[in-house]
Amino acid sequence: MPSAQRHHRFLELASIPLLLLFWQVLAMLMAQRLFPTPLAVGAELIHLATAERLLPDLGQTLIRAGLGFFLAMVLGTALGLVLGRVRSLDRLFSGWLIVGLNLPAIVVAILFYIWLGLTETALISAVVVNKLPLVAATIREGVRNFAPEYDELARAMRWPLARRLRLVFIPQLMPFVLAAARTGLSLIWKIVLVFEVLGSDGGVGYRVSLFFQFFDITSILAYTTAFIAVVLAVEYGLLRPLEHKVLKWRADPA
């Protein structure tokens, strides 16, 4: 491994411990009740996970986020492909996309809760509607960036559609799909929590809203830490290896 690469790897590995250190220093400077130390939060996290409802709450939130993410990615990708390929539809619906991108998430959630009641369907639908325009816009950009010369190569080779998709279309789209997935996932985590605070009977957001009523900062941070741990696990355990595998032909996959 070249030294520059080793240096970058070291900085990456040092990032989270540095954050914990920063947290510890900050906690030592502030009142313990307002800002508990990482150790206190860690102990509370273990307690909540073993004796309370941390794990079911986390699971509930992850299922909602996962389902919302999956639906938004599938529908958004399909929409982005159509808009990127069919100019007339793009012209017709580009205004809709701008509206969708700028629609406040909280408004969408309130509307869906009013229309569909405080149900899972309302929550997940609101997540999908919030996320879908971003995915569609990213994928549309990807389709617009397709290199026409590879299309011509495919025609010169007489590649059938399936081969063309596999060799030309999907590889060009993948960087945009991954970008949409990454930005989408970070957005969805946050939206789901807000929507759970607004109207849900479980999940991380719901539980945090209960802790808020008792000003229980340690528990709020314990839930947040558990949630962040899951986000990091998805980032480092799933997204990055996938990105590395799919984009290894590039000089710098990141």
């Binding site: 010369e149 590879y150 011509e152 190569l153 080779m157 032909w249 590039r250």
Partner: peptide, 27 residues
């Protein structure tokens, strides 16, 4: 049958290795 076409630019698919670029030629 499709001709062997050498374009003005090499036009290799950047996401395939050189060998795979050759293996995917034509059908």
């Amino acid at each position: 049958p499709p001709p062997g076409f050498v374009f003005q630019d090499p036009r290799l698919l950047p996401w395939l290795t050189v060998l795979d670029n050759i293996r995917t030629a034509g059908q």
